[in-house]
Design a protein around this nucleic acid. Structure first.
Lengths: 186, 186
DNA sequence: CAAGATACGTCAATATGGCTGACATAAATT
DNA sequence: AATTTATGTCAGCCATATTGACGTATCTTG
């Protein structure tokens, strides 16, 4: 049945450069290789969590909320909106579910009692750790043949891929120069 | 007004490891740093294209279709479904728009006349190149302070993040051992 | 050649997760 | 006291994904 051998679908002529044993790319060349690697890598990376989330009746949106609440305990709703870059209404639906089902709790702010500071419950911690575990396994596998210096290079690359203008507050802590994470700034 | 200084939202205790000046992570540690960097990096990476696509009334889905049709000219509909991992019905809408508006053309397969081989038109090529240009600019900026060997490390990492079991045919060409892209296998 | 499998297209209904606009309440600020 | 801020919520819209069913052209096979 005319077994498709894909000889006819190899990348087309204008992807001619920046490839092979990575010769220095000429100006104007497009980074098709890295563009595609990012697509597939991210697809499979989030796929790990997606499968597990289905079991709980949650989606990617719930994961993002739970992740940042876990990582930055006491996050305000407004901060969460900044980080996720979605509207209050979109967040509302997802957050309500996580609250109702006991993955997250709210505490009234001490200084400003209008604020609802968000915290993950034990149940929430357990789920987010499980999801991070799956993703960590993938990352560890991927870093398997890479030296510690190489891992730093990967971090440096990812960090530099992020917009640095007008960072929200969470992003600020992540991007603070030099450190691998915000923790080191405290 | 109680300026939020985020001292209270620094990453919580169980993210205590695998950080700093990347000490070798202990077993069981979670890669919170890379998980978050991937999230933000990918968000901004696709954001570049998203903004431009709005101008054309297209979404991310159109970009993905156009990208792979451009990169692998003569791609069959079935192959596209494999790569994108969406259903025929979902692809249908998006593909129809791209066909109707002249970004893609179909040609009946030579061997198998049931197949509709897909090709980008000049108009399609122009758009996809524009989008790849934006993303390439970001990648080049990110690789700015990284050596050629470091860039290879980044590629190696991204490649290793991808599922290698049951690869579809496009992925197969990308993952073929050693080479940076499929082109080198021809 | 007839039967069945395959490649593709499409209709209909549904879910998720975004969006805008409008409005309400409580608490802080001025 | 008036205003602004932080949050929540109602109502509706849109994009993109899903499943299931069905139709048609074409290739493969008994």
């Amino acid at each position: 049945m005319a077994d498709i051998n894909f000889s006819h679908i190899s990348p087309d002529p204008d992807s001619r450069a920046s490839e092979g044993r990575s010769p220095a790319p000429r100006a104007g060349d497009l980074r098709w290789d890295i563009i595609e690697l990012l697509f597939f890598a991210y697809r499979d990376f989030v796929g790990d969590a997606d499968h597990e989330l289905e079991v709980f009746g949650f989606g990617r949106a719930h994961h993002r909320v739970l992740h940042f609440v876990h990582r930055y305990p006491g996050l305000k709703v407004a901060d969460l909106l900044d980080v996720l870059r979605i509207t209050k209404q979109s967040l509302g639906r997802v957050l309500k579910q996580l609250l109702d089902e006991g993955y997250i709790v709210q505490k009234t702010g001490n200084n400003d009692r209008r604020q609802r500071l968000l915290f993950a419950t034990a149940k929430g911690e357990a789920l987010v750790a499980k999801l991070a575990g799956l993703q960590t396994d993938r990352i560890n596998r991927a870093l398997g043949n890479i030296t510690p210096d190489g891992a730093d290079t990967v971090r440096q690359f990812l960090r530099a891929m992020i917009d640095h203008d007008d960072p929200d507050k969470v992003l600020e802590t992540i991007l603070k120069p030099g450190a691998a994470t915000a923790k080191d700034q405290a």
